[in-house]
Write a protein that binds this DNA or RNA. Structure first.
Lengths: 167, 167
DNA sequence: AAAGATTGACACGTCAATCTTA
DNA sequence: TAAGATTGACGTGTCAATCTTT
């Protein structure tokens, strides 16, 4: 087998580590949230994003964008959350094509209860072994990768970050 | 909501980026392999690992370890691969509890054909935006995270790496 | 009883098709 | 016709239960 061009040794080593992280980290977070709060990581993430939004409400499209998910995936998950009375959906009064998703009080409670344990897990699993410099490295490298990953640097989702139920 | 202790700003920023990478990178790789080779990323990874092994053969347990997967998950995937005549399974002659998985010639062909495109995608999506220093950072940080992730620093899977059909 | 592995049920993600409003 | 969103079918992953060999 002699392909176009391989990865060099450094890249190969880095790649193996990245793949391992991508395989194991999500699984670990999933287990923690499932065990301690009965939530999937994605459910938690969606509710956390809503909890930060004005009026705890977001358009499905915006929510999908902020959650890095397809509209389809989001819709399935929100259906589930709605079934559990954690989120409600209703058409936008101004443009009926748009659906607004709102976190209920009950939903907020669920995230609020789940948050401390999840944050602790993230601190332990991700940041536990990193010093300040490595945290900065992590952010820089991830940002660079995301740059290559998103062909469209169009819609900037930069905005004042409010601390709330998340992360 | 006032939990035990939050992430500081730097950690929070890094965490958001990491989550985005974890959400998007696997999806992107999956799409590429599915589209160009009809393989899932995990299937590719499993076959690539077998292609490097002596006699293209590995015990299911070892394969699961190297692939960072549960034995159950691996078993399902290998069943699928076996159905497509890409892998064969047989009990170990010495200890019949053990199952040996072997990559077939046909399976090797499949990986060999898929590899160049996949490597190119990895180069483009992951390393395209990184300079040498950032590649090193990436490896360091991932290694550190894996350290926190694996409670057991027991079994060292360090061994001479052979370049083959992978990465 | 323990190790190695497999299986089946269930939950989730993806894709393509569909529906509704603009 | 396009934008926003939903749905259903299908493949895959996970968990617990199971099976076989030691």
């Amino acid at each position: 087998v002699e392909p176009t061009r391989w990865l060099d040794d450094e890249e190969q080593a880095a790649w193996r580590q990245l793949v391992a992280v991508i395989l194991k980290l999500p699984a670990a977070l999933e287990r923690q949230l499932q065990r301690d709060a009965g939530l999937s990581h994605f459910e938690y993430w969606v509710m956390a994003l809503l909890s930060e939004a004005p009026a705890r409400t977001l358009r499905m499209s915006d929510l999908a964008g902020q959650a890095n998910a397809s509209l389809s995936r989001l819709s399935h998950v929100v259906s589930r959350l709605e079934r559990h009375h954690r989120v409600t959906r209703r058409p936008d009064p101004g443009d009926a094509r748009i659906t607004l998703a709102t976190l209920t009080d009950e939903g907020f409670e669920v995230v609020a209860v789940a948050a401390p344990g999840h944050v602790a897990a993230v601190r332990r699993l991700v940041f536990g072994g990193l010093d300040r410099g490595e945290v900065a490295d992590l952010e820089r490298v991830c940002a660079a990768i995301l740059g290559s990953l998103d062909p469209a640097p169009s819609t900037e989702q930069r905005s004042a970050r409010t601390r709330s139920v998340s992360d």
